[in-house]
Each structure stands twice: as C-alpha cells, then as structure tokens.
Design a protein around this nucleic acid. Sequence first.
RNA 1: GGGCGGUUAGCUCAGCGGGAGAGCGCUGCCUUCACACGGCAGAGGUCACUGGUUCGAUCCCAGUACCGCCCACCA
Length: 873
Amino acid sequence: MTELPKAYQPEEIEKRWYEEWERVGAFRADPVTDKKPYVIVLPPPNVTGALHMGHALNHSLQDALIRRARMQGYEALWVPGTDHAGIATQNVVERELRKDGLDRHALGREAFVDRVWEWKREYGGRITQQMRELGESCDWERERFTMDEGLSRAVRTVFVRWFEDGLVYRGLRVINWCPQCQTALSDIEVEHEDVAGELVTFRYDLSDGSGSISVATTRIETMLGDTGVFVHPSDERYAGLVGKTVRHPFFPDRELPIVADEAVDPEFGTGAVKGTPAHDPVDFEMSERAGTEKVNIFTETAHVNENGGRFEGMDRYTARREVLAALRELGLVEEVERPYVHAVGHCYRSKTEIEPWLSEQWFVKMRPLAEPAIAAAQDGRVTFHPPRFAKAYLNWMENLRDWCISRQLWWGHRIPVWYCDDCGATIAALEDPTECKCGSSALRQDPDVLDTWFSSQLWPFSTLGWPDDTPDLKTFYPTSVMVTAYEIIYLWVARMIMSGMYFMDGQVPFADVFIHGIVRDGEGKKMSKSIGNVIDPLDMIERYGADALRFSLAFIAVPGNDSNSSEERIEGARNFANKLWNASRFVLMSLGDDRPEITGELLVEDRWILSRLDDTIEVVGRELDAFNFSEALHALHAFVWSELCDWYVEMAKPRLREGGAGAAGSVLVHCLDRVLRLLHPVMPFITEELWSKLRPGAGSVMTAPWPAPEGRRDTGAEDSVARFQDLVVALRRLKIEHDVPQGRRVPVAVAAGDLAAGLEPLLDQVVSLARLESIELVDDLGPAGADPRTITPAGLEAAMRLGETVDPALERARLERKRDELAAEVKRAESKLGNESFVAKAPAPVVEKERAKLDEARAAFAKVEGQLGALGG
RNA sequence: GGGCGGUUAGCUCAGCGGGAGAGCGCUGCCUUCACACGGCAGAGGUCACUGGUUCGAUCCCAGUACCGCCCACCA
C-alpha cells in the first residue's frame, strides 16, 4: 500500500477520479432496466454563463441526491444541458461585434445567427467543463441544448399544437417593451422597483370653453398620446362632463372625449384619468371599451416619434422635462409633487425602465393550462419543499395573465408562423411551408423568436426525446424531483408543470419540487460584482477542493432558506475533509492489509460507537429524504469528528498498539466504511479515494449500497460511555484547575456507588484518556481536604491522590460553586414535580425522566455537601 | 395595497411543546507516536416585545416593533 500524504491534497485525486468515472461510464443510465428510475433534469444554465456559487449550490444538492439514489439501487439519471438564453447570448455577441465596429444589422440576420452559433461552439462548453470540476455525475451522453435539433422540433410541435388548440394567439396589446434590448418582455420579466419621480397634475380645457378637467400622471410626456379622459361613472363631480370633449393643447385638432369607466379609482388624484391607450395597459382596455383612438408616440428606442409634434426625436426623459415646461408655459400645470415615490418596471436583463408600448405580439392563453396545474399542487401530485412555496405558486397561478411569448430578437426559436401576402392567411406549421393553401408562394415567416422560457418549460420531456415516443421518455418521465432556487418558481417551474401536464397526458413532470435559497456572502449580503463580494467557486475548488466547496454549501443548505457562504466556511469544510483523511490514514496505517469483520466479543466502547453510527445512519437517511441537507450533514460531521475521531479512535489506540487488528480494528473498518458511503453523495472525490484504499478491489463507492441502520442501537452502552465521558472531562479539568500539567500522570480514586458496575469496564480508558497513573474504585473517598476533588453530573466522585493537601479556601470555593449549581437543579426539579397538574397531566415518561433527574441531582448535591462538611471551617 | 419570511452565543445561522445548539471567532494550556487544516479545557444567550393557550412556551395563537423578500394596471 502506498503511503497517504499527511494532508489531503485534492487536486490530483479529483482529476484522476473524474476521468476514471467518465471512462467507465459511471454516470450513464439505461432506459432498459429492472431498477426503479430516479431522475433529475438539471436546470440548464445559460450557455453564456460561468459557474457561480448559485450553480455550485444547486448542482451540489442535485448531485448528492442523484449519487445517493444510485447507491440506493435506483436507475439514476441526471440530464445535463444548457439554455440558449436569447437576450443574454445575443447581447454577448453584439458586444463582440461592437468591438469590431459592427452591429447585427450590418451583418444581417442570417450571418448574425451564424455568428452566435459560432460563439456557442467555441465558448458554450465552458460551464459544462466547470461542472465536471465540481464533480457532477450527470449523464453527459444525454447533454442537450435548448436549440439543438430535437428540442427545436419539440418547440415547434408545442407551438403548433397550442396554436391549433386556440391557446396561442396573436394580438395588439400594450406590452412591456425594453428600449435597450428592443424587445417585448413577459410580465414576470419585469422587475418593479421604487423610484423617486414626480406626480404632475395638469388641466385639459373643455372644447366648448365651459371649464376644464384636471388629471394627474407620473409620465407627463405620455400626454402626447392622450386620446381621452376617463372618470368613474358614479363620480358626481364629473357627471356633467361625461360626453363632452377637451382639446389637446399641442394638437388642437385632437378632441379628447370624457368617458365614464368602472376601472377609474375616484379616490386617486383628481379622480379623472388621462387616457393614453398606446402606453398604458389599463388605458388600452378603457380605450377598447370606449372606442377612442390609439396614438403611439414612441419609437422602439423610446424616443418620441412623428406623432409627438415638436417633441419628435427627444428621448423619453428629455420629453418629460420639455412637455412639462411647455405645459407650464401654457399655464396648464396645477401641481407638481416631487419626489413622488412609485414602482416602475425595469427589464430583468438590462435594468432599463420598461416602456409600455402598443404592438402586435404572440400570447399563450394561460387559464386553461393553469387549472390542471393548480389542481396537481393542491392534491399533492406535485409537492413543494418546503410547503410554503406551494402557496406562492398557487397564488400566482390563480392570477395568471396571458403570456407574451414573442421577442424581437434574432437569437432563439423563430416563430413557426408564415403570413401569405396574397390571401392574408396565417399558417403555423411544423415544417417550413413552400406555398399557401391559396396557391401563393408569397409567404413571409414571422420575424420574431420565442421567449427563451418557452423552450425551457419543455425541458423535463423534450430532453428525453419528446415529441418522439422514445425509450428514455417511457422510462424516465415523469422525473423525480426538480431542484431549484425560489427565484424561478414562476418563470420556470410553474410553466414546466403546465406544459408537462398538457403534453404528457396530464402527468406532472416531477413529483417533488425542492426549493433552496440563494447564496449570499458571509454577512448575508447578495453577491454582486459591484460590491466586490463575489466568491468564485472555481477559485475555491482550486484552493480547497471540490469536496470542501460542496460540503460547505450542503452543510448550510436549509430548504427554502438563503445561506451565507464565505471562504472561512469553505476552509472549515476543507479541514473536515482533512480530518476524515487523517482518521482514515490512521486506520489504514494501523491495519496494513488486514480488513477484519466484526465478530465475537465487543467492548462497551465498541458497542457504543456502533450504536452512535446506527443512529447517525438513521438521522442522515431521514433528513436527506426530507431534503434537510444541513441537518443530515451536521449529524455526520458530529459523528465523524466528535464521536469517532475525538473519542473512539482514541479509545481504540491502546488495543491497536498491542498489535493485531482485533475488535477495535474491525469496528473502525466498519465505521469508516459506512462513513465513506454516507459522505459520498456530498464528497465524492475524497470518499472514492479513501474507499479504494479501504476496500481495494471492491469497486467504486458510487455503487456501494447506501447504509441502512443495522440494529446496533445499544442505549446501555450509550449511557455508560456518556458517564465515562463526563468523568474523563471532569478529571482533565481537575488537573487544569490545580495546575497539574496535562502530561503528568497522577493516581486517582473514584467513588462510583451504583454506577461502579457500568464504569468498571472503562477504567483503563479513564486512565488512558485522562492521562492518569492509575485509577482505584473505592466506596468512599475519605476525608476531604487532603486532595483535589471533583464530581460529575451523574454523581461520580473522584479525587486526585497527589499526596499534597489542597488549598482549602480554593477547594471550598470550587465546591460551593458546584453545590449552588446542583441546588438550583434540585430546586427546579422539585418545583416541577411538586406541581400536581404536571404529575397528573404530563406523559409518564416525561415525569419519570424528571424524577430520575431529581434523584441524581439530590445525590450529587449530598455528596458535595459531604465534601464541604469534611473540609471543615 | 396584498402575501411570505426573519428577530436565538461576539459574527453567521440551525432547532422548534418537556432541562438552549452548530460553524467561525474568543480565552487558557498542549510541537501527546492520524491530523497544528490539530488536541484538551473553557467563557459566552431573561431564544425582539406584550398578551393568550397549556401541567409546561424559544417553539403554538393574537397583537406590537423593527428587518428582509415576493406579488400588484392607483394613473
């Protein structure tokens, strides 16, 4: 056996094992199998992306689930892939072009799209390479891209089906327009943010000169597109004005009717609303009802267009100033409230202010799709973890508005719709048509592409081969669990459920939705480049190892909660890896090639650690089933570090030193074996490396069975060892308190009373761990004052036979402190048990436990009293 | 305007009806033959506030105060 280095060095090991895993096809799943499938489709990262901490968390948790499922005997499949990310990718390539002094229009559509593909081929593999560095066990042979051929066919199929079923339609609407990206956005792609603006109240004079009506707005420039004034039908203030018209101050020919409409809130502002149907969705609807004109005043870059008269050419903010100034000059401005804080929509990509803009777009009718998806969450066919997110999902689903799916971009799935120039027909088709039903070949394809999320929503089944009826689809759909951050529940999760149920015979795409939080910095601040608090996961992998990064994230992953990551945490995880490494190194060095099985007589400490292991196995399994990674890993961490390393390994040393593996060796092998399996899903590399040393020739730990409790709980052993640990700690402390060097071996006497029998088999261990010269079990410690005394919570008394008298004053102070603690405990327990209702109503085991505690405390108290009395004074 | 979450040790956070936990930090001691990426022993919390339910509340309920987040067509 080769010598293991003294500190764990992840770099070489990680590289070696990942190559090996890929070489033997360890991540491959087979659709022809007797095993039950366990399937996760990876939320596809943007092709433009680089692995960030959010991915690291999301992917670490999925890999842990998949690796565990694989060990549990499932046919585990994790489907990887990337998303074409319309706007983001187009922006990246456009930026590149600009460096060369070009823009996409100069290149033309086809050449530009070619250029993006070229970019994708060159850089699109970056993030998947980084995923390998993290150790992700996805089935790379099944890697997909949202714009590859198969997925494109899925997109077209969905579009055409929905078009034919009347769920996809085209309409003239006020949509969210991003003047920066120059495309429409759906409602969820708009982020509302409070900004300090102004609320301008101004006056429209009635055309007949009989008076005026005042309206208020935060976007005064939009009055250039006003075509009406709306009031509430029951608003008496304006009852006499309805039916009259006002005149537009800048366009004297334009008469604006005053119309009553229920949508007006009479409480707000003046109770009268200026109607700008081309730039406000509500105004649009009111205009539809009233039949007023719709005047679009903006270009796609949010500059005033030819309908803006002398304001033409100004950008919207300049126009805002100038229109206000012009109205002031005319004496029409009544009030300007400033600052006026209100929510303004911003583009989720470019952060530009959204301009509501009238245009023809494609939409998906959501209500019919939402209904089954709502039912599925209500009756538990889809379960959210933690459940509170089901509420958010349902609330959103119940208030869905139609989804604007057309984007004025070039990079994406082109809308499979053609318009006939001759007969005006609209044709949606799977294959590009060459001629219209009318015989004309003058067909033009719709220039727009689909929202990126239109293809992502199909991910759970499109990646498995749909619309073909493939073996993968048969075996692996529906998938098992969707793992994602709460940020994209609406954007993505909800839509996958809707489209999945629609196209897969009502079958939900996944049974469980595990929602985790986002990764923040060490102080809980969101990571951002501008703050400079971003942690680069690849940097962390390089410095601490992938296992350390993964462990550090899973260790703090509480379902639904954000978690704070920091280099210190990752360092701590690295230290844990090193601890595991060294404990294993010790076991391996002690055993040589010997791998004894547990047989024959076990000592109480052996039974204790096996009992603790069993409990740990149970807890880890239970918590992982509930996606409580943090709880599971805390249990494992505590078992490995505190119980196995700090206590059991120390207790096993004397026997190991005596030579021959024996029971201690067999127990260590057993514990290590189980620990490596339990940790493997989160720390795949180090566990595989150590496994190969512990179990040479036994194959990969990846396919070792996931541990189940082995019926080794032993509460008697746990009690005995707990008391023993208390005694060891008390003795170590006693030495420190009396300035006895830790290494100086002293004789000790212990009065254990009823507990003597339990302690007896552990006496040698007390000597060893408390570093004593000898230990003697006695009935009575003899007169106090002659030597330093201590007492454990369970009432074990011990004395160091130093052969020198202690300072009575110091000893008295120590004992008095102890006595006071015990007295308080006695009092607490007495008052509780003195409460008749407690004794009558509390469950019997609780009362029993309380009684036992009282007895123990009383006994210990009596002993301290005795020692104090003997001390005299 | 609705909804959700938070307030627990110096920091960051778990826990959640029966005697307060972790990681990091802090103090003292230790170059003990797996590990100084370590060992040993410690210090440190009226579990935000006010009521209520209960034999018993950090945990459940109501309210208050702050702090986050999400949703929203009051111009």
